[in-house]
Nucleic acid binder design. Structure first.
Length: 850
RNA sequence: GCGGGCGUGAUGGAAUUGGUAGACAUACCGGACUUAAAAUCCGGAGGCUUAACCGCCGUGCGGGUUCGAGUCCCGCCGCCCGCACCA
């Protein structure tokens, strides 16, 4: 029986050794000396209670980076904590009568035990959970600083209200117009809520995206689209008749196409526009129309299918340049949330306006003529013209291109004092109030005489009460008999504590700063920004945008010293872990653990029901296609589980989990181990010298792995490991012992990035000093990276016909001569004349012959 | 509709950025070991043709640039992801 590596005994041993050596603790500035810093962070997990393969992949990727940086001499900060507030804890409380706090902390304990088995190089000394009062107390302090600076504020806004659960729902929690839990029809309610003034930073958040050159292009464009900057003109149309109350000066609209003003055909108001409300108060038909629009709901298909409908208010306004009037309609396609909630419509050049105009028989006047069309006759039918062209039928704008016409029209409107150029953003302020228990309490007090009063800093943290009941719907904090009753800090009168809590996205918007230091702003500044952040692409917009906002806001209240305001220098978004799905004839999903292959057919173990193999999908409980990391670790060890998530696909793409792939990874581990069979201790041999094939290959392999790791091409690094190991094995009989010891020593130090426990066992076999997890990256002899002789393919007219071995510095003319003399190519030159010979030194020779 | 990405053997994917396409792995086939199987080790393999060598074809499709194109340019086709009545 060959000597086999046994992960079950080796892995716990090495984890204990790492812990005893305190290897992964972040070094203090004194210990670190002038070593550069590297802050490596993976998105911290929600403590659901169990680790899944997505976690394993995420943290394995981060661990490769952290270990590599450490070996390269960086002082590495690689912390871990828990994103611990949120609805699942409350749902558990409602469904199973467990305390959310106990539920959360016991989940954390369970997951931490699972984490321990993975052998990640984490510094746990900085661990915290966002539900720790120390953490959310600090967050409350930040909230009050933001409040003081006007970065958070209260306003009334429309929210999704679930009338059964008595709570506000996020848009994501509304499915087809119904609450995701209660199934009740969601109402739009006007509530007073807290908001973060993220729009103050819209311009900078957009412009600075260009500086984030270590972020995926995709994420940057998604954020840019989300922020949605557009330049245009905000202008006023004056009334023809009596002006409605509150709108004496006319109706304000925003447009990006002032060049089409002469094609304006009507004004359209949003059904939610204040003027619509005012008019609806006296007009039951309009009120009914408004209601009908609201019912269409917020679901995307509903919006897509919704036909354009409108209501003529009977009012009209004057055209700013011409002696004519425009009717004012209410139209369902105009959004209150963008611009002013009102538009002027130019149907010839906007599809929505055109659909509406055709339906209600409103005028359509083209004013932009395409380059190849006849200006006298140009007209539109069912398709609006949105392309480039020349302005026509537009008085002083005639003959101009679109851009100049925009400027001309804007100048004129500004001269008439009827409006001004403005920039509009799609981004809206971030609503952070939640009518929930398991979140960070908002630290303010409502007093009838003093208004909104901040909780004095000495009273922080405002702790969540522990004696809450979940037996009625809604927010337990609001139902608590005493918690919200307090005295006003200013006038001491009876007052009420705010019972809303903060959106959990707030918790994760600044945790990176807290990891850098619990309370020392200077230490925070030393570590920030995060050098490498790793997580799922599903956070491309919300979390990552909020984090960028928070870093700026913290900077501006003096809580974080990052000049650029960018908290994250490098971002990597990893792909998902997928698996085949299995389903019985009656549509029941079957777990991979319960299937059995019998020849070509697949059956469910136990029942014997035939099972069909379905699509490869993200591992999920509902499809039952999950693989439990604990079970994997129990069978194959943590190294194999980690290695497999990195080896098959590039880390930014999805990886399909397969049994055979895992077995391949396990085979690799044994193969790597066997390379170290019968190796002497490194100290017992002389240092390797010379330039044997093995030495050349080993040094090249180290460089290849180094480069691949730096560029997140882990699958390529793994391929290099396979080849290298194969070569070392082949060289066992032939290579000098010194060269083999060197190769093994280098191999262990590369292997430790991916399979740290195994590498440690290998390292011990060659008597490596201390622990390989603490060893520096192998030193490379550059002279070994270039070969003395190279093999050059010889092409004739671009087709490879032969090859040539030559010393690396052979003169091109000698290579040319040797190539032409090659007997292999003679038949291909027969009857032809050589026109040209291209020699690319070290690469290729191409003979052009006709 | 807008934006981003992708298309290479049976499969996941390589290809030093314009220089030998298919590294490495999985599945498959063959051999060794074994009473046998598993495990392990060794070997094979893009397609067509051939006894074999040779030869021809080959990176979604069609064109182009180049001595040379998976890579660059133009035009199509298909798939995935994100946003979406944003004026």
């Amino acid at each position: 029986m060959a000597n086999r590596y046994d992960p079950q005994t080796a892995e716990p041993k090495w984890r204990a050794a790492w812990e005893a050596a305190d290897l992964y603790r972040t070094k203090s500035p004194e210990e670190a000396g002038d070593a550069p810093k590297a802050y490596v962070l993976e998105m911290f997990p929600y403590p659901s209670g169990r680790l899944h393969m997505g976690h394993v992949r995420n943290y394995a990727i981060g661990d490769v980076i952290a270990r590599h940086k450490r070996a390269k001499g960086y002082n590495v900060l690689h912390p871990m904590g828990w994103d611990a507030f949120g609805m699942p804890a409350e749902n558990a409380a409602i469904e199973r009568k467990v305390d959310p706090r106990e539920w959360t902390y016991s989940n954390i304990a369970a997951m931490k035990a699972q984490f321990a088995k993975l052998g990640l190089s984490l510094d746990w000394s900085r661990e915290f959970a966002t539900c720790d009062p120390e953490y959310y107390g600090e967050q409350q302090r930040l909230f009050l600083k933001f409040l003081e600076k006007g970065l958070v504020y209260r306003k009334a806004s429309k929210v999704n209200w679930d009338p059964v659960d008595h709570t506000v729902l996020a848009n994501e929690q509304v499915i087809d117009g119904r609450g995701w839990r209660s199934g009740a029809l969601v109402e739009q309610r006007e509530l007073t809520q807290w908001f973060c003034k993220i729009t103050d930073y819209a311009e900078d958040l957009l412009a600075s995206l260009d500086t984030l050159d270590q972020w995926p292009e995709k994420v940057r464009t998604m954020q840019a689209n989300w922020i949605g900057r557009s330049e245009g003109l905000q202008m006023r149309f004056a009334w023809t008749g009596r002006a409605p109350r509150d709108f004496k000066d006319g109706i304000e609209v925003f447009t990006t196409r002032p060049d089409t003003l002469f094609g304006a055909s009507f004004i359209a108001l949003s059904p939610d526009h204040p003027l619509t409300h005012q008019l609806a108060a006296r007009n039951p038909d309009l009120k009914a129309f408004q209601k009908a629009c609201a019912r269409v709901g917020t679901s995307e298909e509903a919006i897509e299918k919704a036909e354009k409908v409108g209501f003529d208010t009977g009012l009209s306004v004057k055209h700013p340049f011409e002696d004519r009037t425009l009717p004012v309609w209410v139209a369902n396609f105009v959004l209150m949330g963008y611009g002013t909630g009102a538009i002027f419509a130019c149907p010839a050049h906007d599809q929505r306006d055109l659909d509406f105009a055709r339906k209600y028989d409103l005028p359509v006047t083209p004013v932009v003529c395409p380059p190849d069309a006849d200006p006298e006759k140009f007209d539109v039918a069912d398709d609006a013209y949105t392309g480039p062209g020349t302005i026509i039928r537009s008085d002083f704008l005639n003959g101009l291109a679109i851009e100049s016409a925009k400027a001309g029209a804007s100048d004129r409107i500004e001269a008439l004092e009827a409006g001004a150029r403005t920039v509009n953003f799609r981004l809206r302020d971030w609503g952070i109030s939640r009518q929930r228990y398991w979140g960070c309490p908002i630290p303010v007090i409502h007093c009838d005489t003093c208004g909104v009063v901040p909780v004095p800093e000495s009273d922080l943290p405002v702790r969540l009460p522990e004696d809450v009941s979940f037996d009625q719907p809604g927010n337990p904090l609001a139902h608590h008999p005493t918690w919200s009753s307090v005295k006003c800090p200013i006038c001491s009168a009876d007052a009420r504590r705010e019972t809303d809590t903060l959106d959990t996205f707030v918790d994760s918007s600044w945790y990176y700063a807290r990891f850098a230091s619990a309370d020392d702003l200077e230490e925070r500044a030393q570590w920030m920004p995060v050098d490498q952040y790793i997580g799922g692409v599903e956070h491309a917009i919300l979390h990552l945008l909020y984090a960028r906002f928070f870093a700026r806001a913290m900077r501006d209240v003096g809580e974080l010293d990052v000049a650029s305001g960018e908290p994250i220098t490098g971002l990597f978004t990893q792909g998902m872990v997928t698996h085949e799905t299995y389903q019985t004839g009656d549509g029941r999903w079957v777990s991979p653990d319960d299937i059995e292959r019998q020849g070509d057919i697949v059956i469910e173990r136990g029942t014997g029901d035939p099972v069909s193999i379905g699509a490869v999908e993200k591992m999920s409980k509902s499809k039952r296609n999950t693989i439990d990391p604990d079970a994997m670790i129990g069978t194959y060890g943590a190294d194999v589980a980690r290695f497999f998530t990195l080896s098959d696909s590039p880390p930014d793409r999805d990886v399909e989990w397969t049994q055979s792939g895992v077995e391949g990874a396990a085979r690799f581990a044994q193969r790597a181990w066997s390379v170290f069979d019968a190796m002497p201790e490194a100290a017992a041999t002389n240092p390797a010298t010379g330039a044997s094939d093995l030495r050349r290959l080993s040094h090249k392999s180290v460089v290849a792995i180094d480069k691949a790791v730096e560029t997140f091409r882990f699958n390529s690094a793994v391929a290099t490991l396979y080849e290298w190991i194969g070569a070392i094995k082949k060289a066992e009989a032939t290579a000098a012992i010194e060269d083999r010891v060197e190769a093994c020593s280098q191999l262990a130090r590369c292997l430790v990035l991916f399979m740290p426990h195994l590498a440690e066992s290998c390292w011990a076999r060659i008597g490596g000093e201390s622990l390989v997890a603490a060893a520096p990256w192998p030193e490379i002899d550059d002279a070994l990276l270039v070969d003395d002789t190279v093999t050059l393919p010889i092409q004739v007219n671009g087709k490879r016909r032969s090859e040539l071995r030559a010393a690396k510095d052979t003169a091109p003319k000698d290579i040319e001569a040797a190539a032409l003399a090659d007997p292999e190519i003679a038949p291909f030159l027969d009857g032809k004349t050589v026109k040209k010979v291209i020699v690319v030194p070290g690469r290729i020779v191409n003979i052009v012959a006709v």
